[in-house]
């Protein structure tokens, strides 16, 4: 394998795809497995530290991790020549690989949409980056929280499909 070969660049994008995926899903699981259950146990006077210091930083790496994951994933699928086959879930292709990676891609794409078009706009209201009344902030926190939970749910079959496609059918 030459260092500058097409295969090397395809591998490079797969590597970057996994790295950025860890950045994204790592933060998603931090929000759901660590932060959300712990915040109610933190004394009131210490809670602003989460919203003012940890949350903005975590959301930055979370949303840009999501963006890097989808961009590198689409490039990788394009370079490997199965982007369209995966988008149409391998229907008519007689390939379980395309179907499996296709389901993974669609689940990941739904999660990416949720991050950028539901969670982030609502979190901007919660953090005061966008003007909102107290009632709106409360509703936004609920919407962002539930959408984050939906993404946690979707991450389980999404990772199954991503890893399963390679493990069983590549």
């Amino acid at each position: 394998m030459e260092l500058v070969s097409y295969e090397w660049w395809a591998f490079c994008f797969r590597w970057l795809h996994v790295l950025s995926g860890i950045m994204w899903i790592g933060h998603l699981w931090y929000f759901n497995f660590t932060q959300a259950p712990t915040v109610p146990k933190i004394p009131m006077e210490l809670r602003p530290a989460i919203g003012k210091f940890i949350l903005p930083e975590a959301l930055f790496w979370f949303r840009w991790g999501a963006m890097a994951t989808i961009v590198t994933g689409l490039i990788l699928a394009g370079m490997n020549g199965y982007l369209l086959n995966a988008i149409k879930l391998g229907i008519g292709d007689h390939s379980r690989y395309y179907t499996t990676i296709g389901f993974g891609m669609w689940l990941g794409a739904i999660m990416w949409f949720n991050v950028w078009f539901i969670i982030w706009p609502n979190q901007q209201k919660v953090m005061g980056l966008v003007q909102a009344s107290d009632d709106e902030k409360k509703a936004s926190a609920r919407t962002a929280g539930l959408t984050s939970r939906i993404n946690t749910l979707l991450s389980i079959p999404m990772v199954y499909c991503m890893v399963g496609a390679m493990h069983f059918y590549a």
Binding site: D93, R149, T152, L153, I156, P157
Partner: peptide
């Protein structure tokens, strides 16, 4: 009725259930 997504354990359990559904769909398609 309480939203199952309010429980982290139920969310994870639903994730595994959805995985089974997806696997069935994959095998149904190809």
């Amino acid at each position: 009725m309480k939203n199952p997504l309010d429980s982290l354990a139920q969310t994870v359990a639903l994730g595994f259930v959805l995985t089974v559904v997806v696997v069935i769909l994959i095998h149904a398609i190809n």
